[in-house]
Amino acid sequence: MACGSTYLWRGETTWFCCGSAWGPCGSAGGGACGNCRSSANHGAWPNASAACWDITRPDLCGEGGIPRRGCGAVMNVKHQCTGATVCITITDCGPRTKSFCGEQTCCNGECRSNRILDLTPAAFSAIGSLSSGKLPVWIYE
């Protein structure tokens, strides 16, 4: 399925590991959808299901309108400042938005608030450096 260009959301993205992996990531498993892999362009969405929403609770950070997008949904993720983009498939639930309410990531003087997406290392590294830990992004579908 191809990625689209219709605006969906904006905020911070972080990264996480899943599937077979080395080190502490070796215990991560395949995520909520069962097929998450660190080496694929996958992502975790905070409203992947009702049960997922109960864990992530982005509404507690003022992000209550995040739409439901389940396993297999495809999104185009664009770095706010560089314009670098990556097309991902949702394979997990996350991030735990409620734990980091109000957190901001900025570039070129413009900030995005709240963690609303988690990317695998493959996807995150396509638009930024893993050592940064988080990036400001716009999401399209």
């Binding site: 399925m1 191809a2 990625c3 992996a21 080395w22 660190s38 080496s39 694929a40 362009n41 495809v74 185009n76 770095h79 560089t82 314009g83 670098a84 983009t85 990556v86 097309c87 991902i88 498939t89 290392p121 493959a122 590294s125 396509a126 638009i127 930024g128 450096s129």
Partner: peptide, 19 residues
């Protein structure tokens, strides 16, 4: 990673990743 990267399909990448 400062250069814009085209993206049309999750199965298509313009750079390679390894882990």
């Amino acid at each position: 990673f400062a250069a814009p990267t085209p993206s049309l399909d999750p199965a298509v990448t313009t750079t390679a990743f390894a882990e």
